[in-house]
Design a binder for these strands. Structure first.
Lengths: 221, 221
DNA sequence: GTACATTATGTCAGTCGCTGACATTCGTCA
DNA sequence: TGACGAATGTCAGCGACTGACATAATGTAC
């Protein structure tokens, strides 16, 4: 599994200057835990960006975050999950966006609008999403994880929402999954176009254009 | 990554009684090579079916095929690829099927008919496809491989064919990928329904029904 | 504030997928 | 037959990940 690793230009932003808010409600213990978690993500982002995903060792990352490798794996189940540490946030945001659409709205419109809320997420975490996309383009392991874990988790949210709206069982009626599959393909195209543009193009616009094509599918007869 | 491993009933067929044809044209050397390859696949199928994917070691498989572990990895790049050893056959068959559709046929019909040719493959290798599907349902590693490698390779064939038919660049026009995504979702549903039925339902029928829903997507507005 | 329970972390040894390097065997072909 | 090359075996090693146990920091009850 040989891999071409990315070489970032010196000007590129490497890490999200994350807010590091650390809910002041919680005690010192959970704050410290959150702190090491943040440190690990930052260390991973930096090393992945500078050396590439495959060339970076989990031991490297742990050392840079000044913790043991064992601690890294207590916070993240896999090396890939370290790169997509905010997966759950994005997924839940998508879920809420889907749930908040009016019930009388056409389903394709609901899906489209919700996917656009995902675009907002991309612009809010621009650097990180670009890094993830670039690493996915250069490392098969990351690419596979993105498809099989990240995107799949989004797809499930769409399937559940569409099935609920239609009032059908998604294991029997194929439409929820087919809609979700089409929508995910649209998002992938938008992501790819956005990535090759280096994040300069407007993700929202790209995503909207791709999603438009779903409704016109039947023209292909 | 804890995994529930499948327990097959004694009556279940474990291995494809593969033809083991070994092109008589070739010499003894390539015949022996093909033979060890077949042995490895058979050993893998048997152990995966009886012990589950994760619980089976590549060393186990190699020993059962009476070769060294190193030889296993000379024939197959990963443990997963051993389970999907015939991936290329299926992919190329899909490609040919897509290429053989008349140029004046509506695109959705071409895609649908080609996916049905994929259904023939499923019935031809019924036991193996069932085993793969069951293992994918029980092991995240297999499931991820199926999505990110196997199904993705099919998806690329559809994208290329549809883009060629439309005469567009699939990196710019989203329609080829969206069609492919919808078609792959349909196939996934059919596979799942077929699997839970234990392979008793007619895959062709399931697949056709799921593919039908693509054209009616715009009804969801 | 002292004592006890919890929890995050470190350390260490080990498994398993996978690879490079080198030696050996065996089919092929002149 | 003898030389060449392809397939395999052997061995050592890397890297992701895990279980077990010890330790230290934190939270809590009194």
């Amino acid at each position: 599994m040989t891999t071409v690793e990315p070489r970032l230009e010196p000007g590129d932003v490497l890490v999200d200057p994350a807010p590091r808010v650390s809910d002041p409600e919680a005690g010192r213990r959970s704050r410290k835990k959150q702190r090491t978690r943040d440190d690990l993500i930052a260390a991973g982002d930096y090393l992945f960006a500078t050396q590439g995903f495959d060339a970076t060792t989990t031991t490297d990352i742990a050392e840079r975050a000044d913790v043991s490798q064992r601690t890294l794996f207590r916070h993240f189940p896999t090396k890939e999950s370290l790169l997509y540490g905010d997966l759950d946030d994005t997924r839940l945001q998508l879920r809420e966006s889907l749930a908040s659409r009016p019930a009388d709205e056409p389903i394709l419109v609901s899906v489209r609008e919700s996917m656009l809320s995902l675009a907002e997420d991309f612009e809010r975490h621009r650097d990180r999403r670009l890094l993830q996309a670039r690493l996915a383009a250069s490392s098969p392991a990351v690419s596979a994880y993105s498809r099989a874990v990240v995107q799949f988790s989004w797809e499930r949210e769409i399937i559940a929402a569409v099935a609920a709206r239609l009032g059908v069982d998604p294991l029997k009626d194929p439409r929820p999954e087919v809609v979700a599959g089409a929508a995910m393909s649209a998002v992938r195209i938008a992501m790819r176009q956005w990535t090759v543009s280096g994040g300069t193009l407007d993700f929202m616009t790209l995503n909207a254009a791709a999603l438009e094509s779903i409704a016109s599918l039947s023209d292909l007869g």
